[in-house]
Simulated scan of single mutants.
Amino acid sequence: MSEIVVPADRVADRLDEVRIVDTRDAWEFEGIGHVPGAVSVPFDSFRADEHAAEDGAGGESGGSGAEESGDGQGMLPGADAFADLMSEAGIENDDRIVAYDDTHGVFAARFLVTAELYGHDPERLHLLDGDFSAWRLDHETTSEVAEFERSTYEVDPPAETPLVGIDAVASATDDPDTVVVDTREAWEFEEGHIPGAVRLDWRELVDDETRGLKPRAEIESILDERGIAPDKRIVLYCNTARRISHTYTVLRHLGYPDLAFYEGSLTEWEADGRELETGA
Rank of each mutant, 00 (worst) to 15 (best):
E3M: 06
I4T: 14
V6E: 01
P7D: 15
A8N: 06
R19A: 11
R19K: 05
T23K: 13
R24S: 06
A26Y: 14
G31T: 06
I32V: 15
H34Y: 12
P36S: 07
G37W: 13
G37I: 06
E50D: 15
A52Q: 03
A53R: 14
S61E: 05
E67I: 12
S69I: 15
D71F: 11
G72M: 12
G74A: 14
M75C: 04
M75I: 10
L76H: 03
D80S: 09
A83Y: 04
A83K: 07
G90T: 07
I91G: 07
I97S: 02
D101F: 13
D102A: 15
T103E: 13
A108F: 11
T114Y: 10
L117W: 13
L125H: 07
L125V: 13
H126W: 12
D138I: 02
H139V: 00
E144A: 10
E147W: 04
V155N: 03
T161C: 05
A168K: 00
T173G: 00
E185R: 14
E190L: 08
A197S: 10
R203W: 11
L213E: 07
L213A: 10
E218N: 09
I219T: 15
S221E: 14
R226S: 05
I228C: 12
P230I: 10
D231M: 09
D231T: 02
C238A: 05
C238V: 07
A241Q: 09
R243N: 03
I244N: 04
H246P: 09
G255R: 07
L259Q: 02
S265D: 00
E270C: 04
